[in-house]
């Protein structure tokens, strides 16, 4: 008997990592996810190791080198002030991802708190959902602009404005999941055993709402990166000369006839980042939340 149990234990231990985590197995078989993850990993690497990847100062002006096309001494060329576009792109990645991450963290904290409170405590639901309805009635970019205009242009303002725009949307998604999970038998059982609301929410309800939340946060990241660039483009993000991709596109706009690369290259960096996050989000949604599957069938 003991031998049989030991053999079973050895068999369990021998199971590979992928056998133990079927979600990971499904993710690495999802082509879109793999491409998105690889692209995003490269962008994160560039952002984290920006100081090692390029030693050039992104704000150093060299008027005699202005409007140099890509290639040769300057990989991505130079802008109207002779600054290296390569150095500005690399450092811009850091700021874009930092703002995106800050928005995701604020969404994860406040969106989950609001959504969980609204879905679990029905008395709060009506009030909280009307407030989220009202915030969602504003077009995202318009509300972000309004908040950014009121608080003044800066990276911090952009992050707060974007978080305020997307928190109600995240709260809605968490609330929808909580409404389903709170009616399940294991939650009723925990309640009958005398568990507190806080414990039920923390131990039983929220862990079962993670899949749609992770998918939502991936898309929030993508939206935040684009909207931050839009705010910078309109002059309401981080003020120049901060090397953000939106600022670079706005600055290059005047020279679009003769030096299109100043606008083209930051846009490509931005589009690649958003594409990688969309691919990641699609993959995560298909694997974690197949009810919403739209990318592959």
């Amino acid at each position: 008997m003991t031998t049989a149990v030991d053999a079973a234990a050895v068999a369990v231990r021998k199971r590979t990592f992928l056998q133990r985590y079927p979600v990971v197995r499904r993710l690495i078989r999802h082509k879109a996810f793999v491409v998105g993850a690889a692209l995003f990993a490269i962008i994160v690497f560039v952002a984290v190791f920006a100081d090692w990847i390029t030693t050039a100062d992104p704000n150093r002006m060299a008027i005699r080198f202005r409007f140099r096309p890509p290639g040769g001494e300057f990989l991505f060329g130079t802008d109207n002030l002779g600054r290296s576009i390569y150095a500005r792109i690399v450092h811009g990645a850091r700021l874009s991802l930092a703002i995106g991450l800050a928005v995701v963290v604020m969404n994860a904290v406040f969106g989950v708190a609001l959504g969980a409170a609204s879905g679990y405590f029905r008395r709060l639901d009506n009030v909280l959902m009307r407030v989220t309805d009202a915030l969602m009635a504003f077009p995202p970019i318009l509300l972000a602009l309004g908040i950014a205009a009121a608080l003044g242009p800066s990276s911090m303002t952009a992050a707060i404005a974007l978080a305020a725009v997307y928190i109600p949307r995240t709260a809605r998604i968490v609330r929808a999941s909580v409404l389903v999970v709170r009616e399940m038998e294991f939650v009723q059982a925990a309640l009958a055993m005398g568990a507190s609301n806080w414990r039920i929410l923390r131990k039983h309800v929220l862990p079962n709402c993670m899949a749609p939340l992770i998918v939502q946060l991936t898309f929030v990241f993508a939206f935040a990166v684009v909207t931050e660039a839009t705010l910078s483009f309109l002059g309401l993000g981080s003020p120049p000369p901060t090397p953000t991709w939106g600022n670079m596109i706005a600055e290059g706009r005047q020279y679009i006839r003769d030096a299109a690369w100043i606008t083209l290259i930051p846009g490509l960096a931005l589009a690649t980042t958003v594409l990688s996050l969309n691919l990641l989000g699609d993959g995560l949604r298909d694997v974690l939340d197949p009810r919403l599957k739209i990318s592959q069938d």
Partner: peptide
């Protein structure tokens, strides 16, 4: 169609507008 859709979803519209200006106007 799906690659086209994915690219459409990922391109920032203000940048696309500038690219259209470069191509069709400049």
């Amino acid at each position: 169609a799906m690659i086209f859709a994915l690219i459409g979803v990922s391109l920032p519209n203000f940048w696309l507008g500038l690219m259209l200006i470069i191509l069709f106007s400049v």
